[in-house]
Design a protein around this nucleic acid. Sequence first.
DNA 1: TGGGTACGTAACAGCAAGGGTACATAGCCC
DNA 2: GGGCTATGTACCCTTGCTGTTACGTACCCA
Lengths: 105, 105
Amino acid sequence: MDAVLQALADPSRRTMLELLRHRPATAGQLAEALPIARPGVSRHLRVLREVGLVDVRQDAQRRVYSLRPEALVEVDQWLEPYRALWRNRLDALHTEIARGKKERK
Amino acid sequence: MDAVLQALADPSRRTMLELLRHRPATAGQLAEALPIARPGVSRHLRVLREVGLVDVRQDAQRRVYSLRPEALVEVDQWLEPYRALWRNRLDALHTEIARGKKERK
DNA sequence: TGGGTACGTAACAGCAAGGGTACATAGCCC
DNA sequence: GGGCTATGTACCCTTGCTGTTACGTACCCA
């Protein structure tokens, strides 16, 4: 889970996921759509592969990458306790407003 | 939105959020609970503050930091389209399993 | 088998992130 | 005010990431 969140930190990698979200693509296609050169894309793909965010399918000389959205489940799970908080906070806010608030220094 | 995901990449910062999830804490308290020294913690807190993940409340010489879970809403939103994908995929899997069980009997 | 295509990897340069030490600052308490 | 506490900032150093060029590899086709 650590690894996934760390992989998501890079904007280029997020863009790649965004592209793969619509359809699978080869490394070359991804490189064309990105501001960085092919080798860089390859290395990013390696990272994404290692954390399970993408799958590779060999097609002759090509390597077709596809999104593996299940890997993001752990991010969702990491988010879960916080999600509970931000929802409660809205509730609490409403309650506070309803009955007045005590001062805190 | 970019900034939040990038801020979450660092394990120390995630630990800090985890601590703040239970209760607000001063910079010193956070530093004690972490493997890094105070100045490092201060810098991390600055990052978290800048992306809106924490709030500061001045209490005499202390600075009490508290979590601002709303900032994570944008991560949740970023996740949304992918969530749709993995749910569909899981549903399909469950359908497969259910059908497999039926057919096997 | 030779040539062209599509990738990945190695080696290297550049730069930003992250940690530590030392110092500055702000607010209490005597 | 003097000293103590709590914290942020400046500076330096090291490490790791990012991107590039050059090269190696696997595969297809004529």
